[in-house]
Simulated scan of single mutants.
Amino acid sequence: MSCYASLVKPSSKLLLIVLISDYIFCRLSGDEFCIVIKDITASFQSQFADTLISCLRNGMLLSVGELRISISIGIATSEPNTKSFEDLMALADAAMYYAKKRGKNQYKLFDQSIAQDVLFRKQVAEKLRVALENNEFHLNFMPIYHVDSLKIHSAEVLIRCNAKSLQSIGPDIYIPIAEEFGLIKDIDLWVIETTFALISQHSDFIEQAQLSIAINISSLELHNTLFIQDIKKLITDYNIDTQCIQMEITETSLIETDELTITTLQALQNLGIKLALDDFGMGYTAFSQLINYPVDCLKIDKSFIDSLMLYKESEKSVLKAIFSIANAYHLSTTAEGVEEVAQLEYIRNNNCDYVQGYLLSKPMPWDSFVKEVTSPKTHDL
């Protein structure tokens, strides 16, 4: 007997518990639901998913208006080596992960390619655990410059791994895996504490140079009830002047903002820490919503800067709108990924405040960063 399990994740939270003849449809937690069907054919799986997506795409008419829902569906079928229902659910969950990566209203059947990638992610997660235990990480610093003077204003902290087992795997790969396997909080705290220790050691230099240090934090910290407590302790332990600290969160982490998210951000601001919205433009935040977020800076995503070289007026119009809105809301702006002189000239002419990118500098160790601040290169740009 085959058993079909499908995990469904609507983008809008809707509470449903339904029993339909041969189907079991129940809520698992939050906005995740499960459908279990016995004795079905392979062709029926795709047909069923298509029908479900089509039905929900049409929307639901409620007394207060129309509700539209998009979903991601992961599908798995029991095989002779499927040992338990929990194993089957894990396969469906893995398939749903890939469906979500494709975008809204997508489904994915569990297959061998997913199985191989699941194994890869598990192996990377284990290597990350070992690297944390062995303290096999270090920090690099990406200089951020004033647009007009090209004097260094601050540095973005970037984590790097020394472990040979992770030598060919960059943070763009292992950070999402760390989030998936519950390791990101330990990594975040390691980065923050290591940075605070360095700031404490070089506090006179940082104060004299009027530098700010920017630290990336995972969106998961916005729902970590212990995060603010941990930050307060580290501030006290290392006697940190929080005026030199900025924390960066990605814009996409605010797509589904709730009360706890806002409370956490406000608590960070109350500690004197500045907040930056990283990769801005990728999460499609409505400009009108910015006033609701306690942030101080917009970091414009590299893709917008790259598009300047395509000479598309539509892309330039979006950038101009971002700069205008930021100015109206008294937010500073940083252009990320500037690699061409023409890009620098454009953001200069549109009142951008700060710039970072390979045109001016690559990430570097702390000692090299200090030399860059004290004996800066001449940028004739």
Results as ranks from 00 to 15, higher is better:
Ile249Val: 14
Ile35Lys: 04
Ala92Ile: 04
Met1Cys: 05
Gly281Glu: 02
Phe85Leu: 14
Glu221Gln: 10
Phe181Ser: 11
Lys100Glu: 08
Ile262Arg: 13
Leu91Phe: 13
His330Ile: 10
Phe110Met: 12
Gln45Cys: 12
Asp186Gln: 12
Gly30Val: 02
Val18Tyr: 15
Ala335Cys: 02
Tyr293Met: 07
Leu308Cys: 06
Val341Phe: 09
Gln229Ile: 03
Asp188Gln: 04
Glu126Cys: 11
Ser288Gln: 09
Ser218Asp: 02
Trp366Glu: 05
Ile206Leu: 00
Ile322Lys: 13
Leu158Cys: 04
Asp87Cys: 11
Met96His: 14
Trp366Asn: 01
Trp366Cys: 01
Val191Glu: 05
Ala5Cys: 07
Thr257Val: 14
His223Met: 07
Ala131Asn: 05
Ser6Arg: 07
Asn349Pro: 02
Ala94Trp: 07
Asp31Tyr: 06
Phe110His: 13
Thr195Pro: 03
Asn239Gly: 07
Leu260Gly: 03
Val338Tyr: 00
Lys164Phe: 09
Asn216Glu: 05
Cys352Arg: 10
Ile228Pro: 03
Ser203Ile: 12
Ile305Thr: 13
Ile215Met: 00
Leu344Thr: 04
Ser219Ala: 05
Ala163Asn: 13
Asn327Cys: 00
Ser149Arg: 12
Gln229Phe: 01
Val147His: 07
Ala99Cys: 03
Thr77Trp: 10
Ser149Asp: 05
Asn58Gln: 15
Cys26Asn: 07
Thr225Trp: 08
Ile159Glu: 06
Ile199Met: 13
Leu150Thr: 02
Ile175Arg: 01
Asn135Leu: 02
Val124Lys: 10
Ser43Leu: 13
Pro10Cys: 01
Ile213Asn: 06
Glu251Ala: 04
Ala163Ser: 15
Val295His: 04
Pro10Thr: 04
Asn134Asp: 07
Cys352Glu: 06
Ser307Met: 12
Lys122Phe: 06
Pro363Ala: 10
Met89Tyr: 00
Asp258Gly: 05
Ile114Met: 09
Trp366Phe: 14
Lys312Asn: 12
Asn239Gln: 15
